[in-house]
Amino acid sequence: MGSDKLLFIEDLHKYYGKHHVLKGVNLAVNEGESVVIIGPSGSGKSTLLRCINLLVKPDKGRIVFDNEEITTGKIDVRRVREKIGFVFQHFNLFLHLTAIENVMLGLIKVKNYPREKARRIAEEALLSVGITEELWNKYPAQLSGGQQQRVAIARAIAMEPKLLLFDEPTSALDPELIGEVLKVMEKLANEGRTMIVVTHEIGFALKAADRVVFFDDGKIIEEGSPEQVILNPKTERARRFLFSIRELYRLE
């Protein structure tokens, strides 16, 4: 493995009881690369992302992140998670904290920044995702879904992670709110951030991804450039799946 590889996953397996969910995943992600993972529901995409930031413990295989194997028992889980930002499908903002406090919590409690510094960084992060000052002191329930998700993205990037994971970040949003979130994500990709995005937004994949991975039944079935995998898939399963979502999203 080269030193430009930020993430390196080798033969990863995960069982839920008897249910074999990840069946030997191999994936490498370069520094600055944005990878889109597409694939049918229940194929294990979320499980893969959760394994990467150790919310779920894999049963077999290795994950090397930032030149360090993180699948051994000795690793400091919190330090790894601090370096990996996670954006959830349902935003998962802290319900008792305002938008800006949501972003500040990790800066204060994990990075031990003084309040003032944390606030400055949080403000910057919020502005960078288009959350302007009048929304900073609102509670999650007072924000639209798109705003909530952008705050969640700000919460992730404020920690200056080396890797950003997105798990279907737009699939809980009303159609008219999807665009504002995708725009932020495109910007992040263009800034050269390393990110792995699970999404069905093919338009986003074509525009912003360096590589697309088709995932099915716990394995990577096909990978390549966006044009190749999305517009010209080699495998029958990828073709069928892409056809069905193109129908669903009424793309060309």
Binding site: L55, R78, G85, F86, N92, F94, G106, K109
Partner: peptide, 18 residues
Amino acid sequence: VPREQWEAALSIGLSKWS
């Protein structure tokens, strides 16, 4: 308290106690 609140907190690196 929803389980997702836990996951969100852990994902930014907070400890269990924190």
